[in-house]
Design a protein around this nucleic acid. Structure first.
Lengths: 142, 142
DNA sequence: GTACTTGCAAACAGTTTGCATAGGC
DNA sequence: GCCTATGCAAACTGTTTGCAAGTAC
């Protein structure tokens, strides 16, 4: 997702209807690097658009995924998180505070080939302790 | 998990009790590259050990994870899958047949460092169509 | 006007939990 | 004998679904 405007154009081109609910979700996601879950989105979007429902959030996320405007992360073990940045990059999951942090490689990552397979996507997940938690030394139990 | 015997020794050393149920799960997992889910394990182990319960399967998997005898994969979007091979390697998820396939790199993969972070683990997930599905051309809807 | 989207609530799947009983060490 | 593990069922969480009413185009 490069910008709200481009995203809306892309969706319109693909025949999706642009409801106010969908636009509210898109506006919340644009430039958001916090990797929100569906519940995070529901909670936040509801503040500005109180009549939105959970089903609509999921519906919108599914549509944005199909339109390749967002990617889904399964880095957490219980729920799915979403990232509007569809450029190839990795993710770090802090096992202490639960934050998901973008990891951009030094050089442009190219997805390797695997003989005989068609690769549509790759995700690289790192698990560990983030610098903030290491500094604060407020490790819960590790 | 290198072998059932080594695994049992390791668990004993760490103070875990070796119940028949746990041994049945370990024997099922040893050398198993099918990346079973908890439900798969429950179904299969039950055949040889009919009185096992779901809670015990989850309990055993949690213990094996803590003992670093297995790794958990979140490559699927709904459930967790398990791999008794704890050597660094990637995984491929076929978006057509749902199979999870081990991907071993040509050269020994080293986990990169990330300045200021402590990395405990890394997972690389590939998504696409496996060679079997490509050959069979029995693509459901893609 | 038509077809798709919404909101709601109920359903669903995977996983976790509480507790009495059983069993490893 | 102690303390942890088991089995069962119920609870819980994240996500999906069915359907009547609403709305983008």
């Amino acid at each position: 997702m490069k910008s709200v405007k481009e995203c809306l154009n892309n969706l319109k081109k693909k025949g999706f209807k642009l409801t106010p609910q969908r636009q509210a979700v898109i506006e919340y996601l644009e430039g958001n690097s916090s990797h929100p879950s569906a519940a995070d989105m529901f909670r936040e979007v509801k503040k500005k658009y109180p009549m939105i429902s959970f089903a609509t959030v999921y519906n919108t996320l599914k549509m944005l995924g199909e339109a390749k405007e967002i990617i889904s992360l399964t880095i957490g073990f219980d729920k799915v998180n979403f990232d509007p940045n569809t450029e190839q990059h990795g993710h770090f999951f802090c096992q202490n505070c639960g934050k998901i942090i973008d990891i951009f490689p030094d050089k442009k990552m190219k997805i390797e080939e695997i003989e005989g397979y068609q690769i549509n996507d790759r995700q690289i997940y790192y698990y560990g302790i983030c610098s903030e938690c290491l500094k604060a030394n407020n490790l819960d139990e590790l």
